[in-house]
Amino acid sequence: MKFKRVTLFAGHYGSGKTNIAVNYAIAMRKAGLPVSIADLDIVNPYFRTKDSADRLAEAGIRLISSQFANSNVDTPALPGEIYAITDDRSTYAVMDVGGDDRGALALGRYAPAIVEENAYEMLFVVNAYRPLTRTPAEAFEVMREVEAAGKIPFTAIVNNSNVGRDTTADDVLQTVPFMEELSRLTGLPVKMTTVREDLREGLSRRIDNLFPLTLQKKYTWT
């Protein structure tokens, strides 16, 4: 896989952005690149990049998130350290953007520098099983709202379609026509289809560009 200097993940809330961003950063690091990951989500404090702090540290990835994340200070503030991503062009970076247009709003202040440098990928994460992106037309609507708020045009689609822990290979296969239609509507390619590690083998000859995910589990019970 070829990596751009800055990769951004954005989309509908609950589409799986944070899990994908963490896994993607680890893949970049494994390819030998110096990697930072920035948590730009100031909308939903429940699920955060910082939940994977141990895994990221172990992989040698620099985590840039609010010093207040997972703390007692309820301040939706972003750290100045995020500018290191746009200022230091020798490093690679993954940016985990907050959900929907409201979440993407925080991206606006970094957009001019990112667009000007033009070494980025802006990826639209979509799960066709999520309620407000149930048709390609609905997903396209969300995509345009996010783009308008974040001020960076999307460059590709990430198919993260799943129905949670009981997802089957067939559930993923069913969404291929959906993504082809979304691709036609938007004029953007499907960069990759993200699947749980154990589904990879069964799908390997049926879907191109599979990207396996190790999931960060918040709960230990079923």
């Binding site: 609950g14 099983y129 999520r130 309620p131 149930r134 048709t135 799943n162 069913q174 026509p177 959906f178």
Partner: peptide, 19 residues
Amino acid sequence: MSGPYGTMAEKVLMKGNEA
């Protein structure tokens, strides 16, 4: 909530709040 995409139409992954 149905769509033309096979058995996909029968499944939806929701947050409790959305449900």
